[in-house]
């Protein structure tokens, strides 16, 4: 077809050059067509989340019909009796993530300050930030392996000390078996720290120098400037980073499943073993048979999905609002 047209292009008179015409047609395909192709792929990528939501909800549907809303606060989880409730797992997920958030925020802000202020020369600061971010690259199964064989044995005496001296206090009221809620919370702290520190550092760096200079010129010391000027100016970014970290902690599976002890339990003691939604999925799903057990596990997945969705959307909104504000 191409050859046809080019041979006919030897006719000189018509004004419109057919060769130019076909390149225009080609251009149209390469132009508009290309845009639609990329749009198609973008829609596929974005549509994955709806497809995922639809598929796991559909699979969990029989469990939703059987148990209804009380699934959320029921504490039964018995495979032979076919009675399932999510509360122990929701409890474990929220408590371990809460511990992680409580510890990772101050440590993360410290790292962000050390790497953004000029306490240290640049050639120390850059590698320091790099090393902290490298933790995020370590696969979580390896952090779990380290947790089982290194961290738990090292940390057990500390847990026993806490129990012996503060045993009257409900948080430390049980004999520590080794794995448990506190260990899982600490492991999660390590894992979400890079998220919090790296975003907080970027936000702190983008605070205008004039604000800092003004505070210093009025006689404030470095730490007075940090607490009264830098941190308030960066507050929304740090909150966004922390919520993003929380989202990571809620969904973290392998490391937690390996160090939490995997017992279905609601306990006031942080030294006790427990379980989380991702951990019970990792432990039971492959062995579950078609039926109510599998559907209930799917429903746990749906709850986790919704929980992380809400948390992540909040973080995205806060960080987007921040970057819009920064652009003005």
């Amino acid at each position: 077809m191409n050859a046809d047209l080019s041979s006919s292009s030897s006719i000189p008179s018509t004004g419109v050059n057919p060769e130019q015409d076909i390149s225009r047609k080609g251009n149209f395909l390469m132009d508009e067509g290309f845009v639609y192709i990329t749009l198609g792929f973008a829609v596929i990528a974005a549509g994955l989340i709806f497809w995922m939501a639809a598929i796991i909800t559909e699979k969990a549907w029989p469990a939703i019909q059987t148990f209804g809303i009380p699934f959320i606060w029921s504490t039964d989880w018995s495979v032979p009796a076919e009675k399932f409730g999510a509360l122990p797992y929701i409890f474990g997920t929220l408590v371990t993530s809460g511990i992680a958030l409580l510890l990772a925020v101050p440590i993360g802000i410290s790292v962000a300050l050390i790497t953004s202020e000029n306490f240290l020369p640049q050639w120390v600061r850059t590698p320091l930030g790099f090393i902290v971010e490298l933790i995020a690259a370590i696969p979580s199964v390896i952090i779990g392996l380290w947790g089982i064989f290194v961290f738990i044995p090292v940390f057990l005496p500390v847990q026993q000390f806490l129990h012996q001296t503060l045993g009257w206090f409900p948080l430390f009221s049980s004999e520590p078996p080794g794995p448990g809620i506190l260990v899982a919370g600490l492991i999660l702290t390590v894992m979400i720290l890079p998220t919090i520190s790296s975003i907080s550092r970027d936000v702190l760096r983008s605070v205008p120098v004039t604000l800092r200079s003004a505070s210093m010129a009025l006689g404030a010391t470095r730490w007075e400037t940090i607490f009264r000027v830098m941190l308030p100016a960066a507050a929304s970014g740090i909150v966004g980073a922390s919520i993003l970290g929380l989202g990571r902690a809620l969904g973290e599976t392998m490391a937690v499943a390996m160090v939490i002890g995997n017992t279905k339990r609601i306990t006031p003691s942080l030294l006790d073993s427990a379980s989380t939604i991702p951990a019970v999925l990792a432990n039971e799903f492959a062995e579950s048979h078609e039926g109510l057990h599998l559907q209930s596990l799917m429903l746990l997945g749906v709850i986790l999905f919704i929980l992380t969705l809400v948390v992540n959307i909040a973080a995205v909104w806060i960080i987007q609002a921040l970057s819009l504000k920064g652009r003005e």
Binding site: G251, T253, L281, A282, F305, A315
Partner: peptide, 8 residues
């Protein structure tokens, strides 16, 4: 989507 837990 990037925030969906990998277990889900």
């Amino acid at each position: 989507l990037s925030g969906v837990p990998s277990i889900v």
